[in-house]
Design a protein around this nucleic acid. Structure first.
Lengths: 224, 224
DNA sequence: GTCTATATGTAGATAGAC
DNA sequence: GTCTATCTACATATAGAC
């Protein structure tokens, strides 16, 4: 019996899924605003429009709830990036530039943030909290590291003589600036009108120039 | 009557100052580890080795305590940066490079972090939390913005035709990467031995290359 | 699946003795 | 200046009725 058939038969299951999503979405928004410790489960319940018990039932403990929220976004983003990177190397005669590679890393993230989906916007703010959090950073790091390593190797393929230690450090710096600028831009634009969504798209080019130029400079490479 | 004379006459005043410092230092370390909401006043009291009432007496409310901790570092750092920037422009025939300017912004911060003072190390981790925090960021922003503006104007003086909007964005990106990389490096090295303190000094050059190269690239400038 | 009620602990802040 | 004791509110988590 498929899930869909089950949903047909028993209305409570679909209602349950809807409730679960309301809980996760509300928690994502609140965690994004004030971080893990700044939010109470009661606030999440109120934001989601459900009772306190429902948060525990669908989300488990507060920490489990947080983990769930992070994990459901990671795979989507990693998939986008892998596809973008593969596409760059798909046409053998054309060698992608460092800027191309960084653009393919940055663009999916900015794309999610500027898609208009308030949940993805919340997620970018949530992630920005995590990079300075000793408790959660190791976990998200494990999720994002595999793809980041693929990007480092792609850069090494183009610049075989590159200093790998410097490259790794510079890449972390680039990611930090991306997370921070997107989160703060989203934070500002989510308070105002449509016009500001353009700002993020324009900022994307500045960000990509900054990241690729910064890495090139840090690794003593002549971008070409 | 000077404070010192008062201290001589009444021993409680010096003891009180010492207690106050213990409270502020302990709070700084704990806020750095887990952020504002992750710490209880009781934990601060225990870390400082004082009673709960003492934290309230010397630190005021939790928010006031936090403000005090941030403010006592800002002036020191801003002073260092202003001195460094003025020195760059002190010898009129020599025009400082963009890299020189960014180095004079980054170096004081890295210097405090790598000085070995655990309180300055804690502060760098604390600041890293704030940039993604809606409640505190506006306040520290007000503290740091004046000096940042002086740096932007210094860069404009060297590159009069520069795109100021791009420059401002790129500068924020550079600062973000600095805050993040210093905090995470300090976090790692504070758990291990002296040898790792070298790492931050070496990383400083990579960071300065990254920031200046990134800004140059984002502003379509040819660094020279 | 959903709700109410509650068990159990901890939060920030302060009053009052010394 | 310092300590103890306590007020009031809110936290997480779950048991049990529906």
């Amino acid at each position: 019996m498929t899930q869909k058939e089950a949903a047909k038969i028993d209305g409570r299951i679909v209602r349950g899924e809807a409730t679960r999503e309301k809980v996760l979405d509300a928690a994502e928004r609140l965690f994004a605003d004030v971080g893990f410790d700044g939010v109470s489960i009661r606030q999440i319940a109120q934001e989601a429009g459900v009772t306190l018990g429902m948060v525990g039932f669908h989300g488990g403990s507060k920490a489990e709830l947080f983990d769930t929220i992070v994990e459901r976004r990671v795979s989507v983003l990693s998939e986008e990036r892998r596809k973008a990177l593969a596409q760059l190397f798909a046409a053998p005669p054309d060698v992608p530039t460092l800027r191309d590679i960084m653009a393919s890393y940055v663009h999916p993230y900015v794309g999610m943030a500027s898609s208009g989906d308030p949940q993805w916007q919340a997620y970018t703010r949530l992630i920005a909290h995590l990079v300075s959090d000793e408790r959660w950073y190791p976990r998200v790091k494990d999720h994002y590291d595999p793809v980041a390593r693929e990007y480092l190797e792609a850069i090494v393929r183009i610049y075989p003589g590159i200093d790998r230690t410097r490259l790794a450090s510079a890449f972390v710096m680039a990611v930090s600036s991306m997370l921070s600028i997107v989160a703060s831009t989203v934070r500002i634009s989510s308070l105002s009108d449509q016009r500001d969504r353009m700002a993020l798209s324009e900022l994307e080019n500045v960000l990509i120039d900054f990241c690729s130029g910064g890495i090139a400079s840090a690794c003593h490479i002549v971008p070409q």
